[in-house]
């Protein structure tokens, strides 16, 4: 039975997350811009400046947040099962016992494929936390982990 102590996600995954935030922030920054432009009836070049400023400010905050978010995102595997810890302000830890795993998926997005990453999705028969995801693994590592979780699932489903 394979076990390992708490591991961090792949550094490349942080890049992907930041890249998608870079794009999302493009949209988010238009909010304050429209608001300020409407309130103060700004000239177009001031609007552009507001847009750039709010973009930088928002992205700066998010960039800072992702550092801590990435640092907090850790997972480990012991005899009992898979444990995932995440969250900066609201921290949570999910624990899936090995013998409760129903099935395991690996999904990859276009960006993740570029870095050869994969996202592990573990399904249990629960309701609220029935699916537990673990992103940012090397694709091969995710496949190994899936194999490990399935292999050591000793419970044959006898009803």
């Amino acid at each position: 039975m394979q076990t390992f102590e708490s591991k961090a996600l792949e550094q490349d995954y942080l890049k992907i997350v930041r890249f998608s935030w870079l794009l999302t922030t493009l949209l988010m920054a238009s909010g304050p811009t429209i608001l300020f432009s409407a309130i103060f009836e700004l000239k177009w070049y001031f609007s552009v400046i507001t847009y750039l400023a709010s973009y930088l400010l928002l992205y700066g905050l998010i960039h800072w947040y992702t550092i801590h978010w990435f640092k907090a995102y850790r997972y480990s595997l012991n005899e009992a099962g898979l444990k995932i810890h995440k969250g900066v302000f609201w921290q949570q830890q999910n624990m899936v016992p090995r013998n409760r795993v129903q099935h395991v998926d690996i999904t990859t997005g276009p960006l993740e494929r570029r870095y050869d990453l994969g996202k592990l999705v573990v399904h249990t028969a629960g309701t609220r936390n029935a699916t537990i995801t673990l992103p940012g693994l090397m694709h091969q590592h995710a496949a190994d982990l899936r194999q490990e979780l399935i292999n050591t699932n000793s419970s044959e489903d006898t009803v």
Binding site: W90, G126, A130
Partner: peptide
């Protein structure tokens, strides 16, 4: 019958 276990900590909890 337990499927999985979670632990939560809010800033107030901390």
């Amino acid at each position: 019958k337990i499927q999985n276990i979670s632990y939560m900590q809010t800033p107030f909890d901390r």
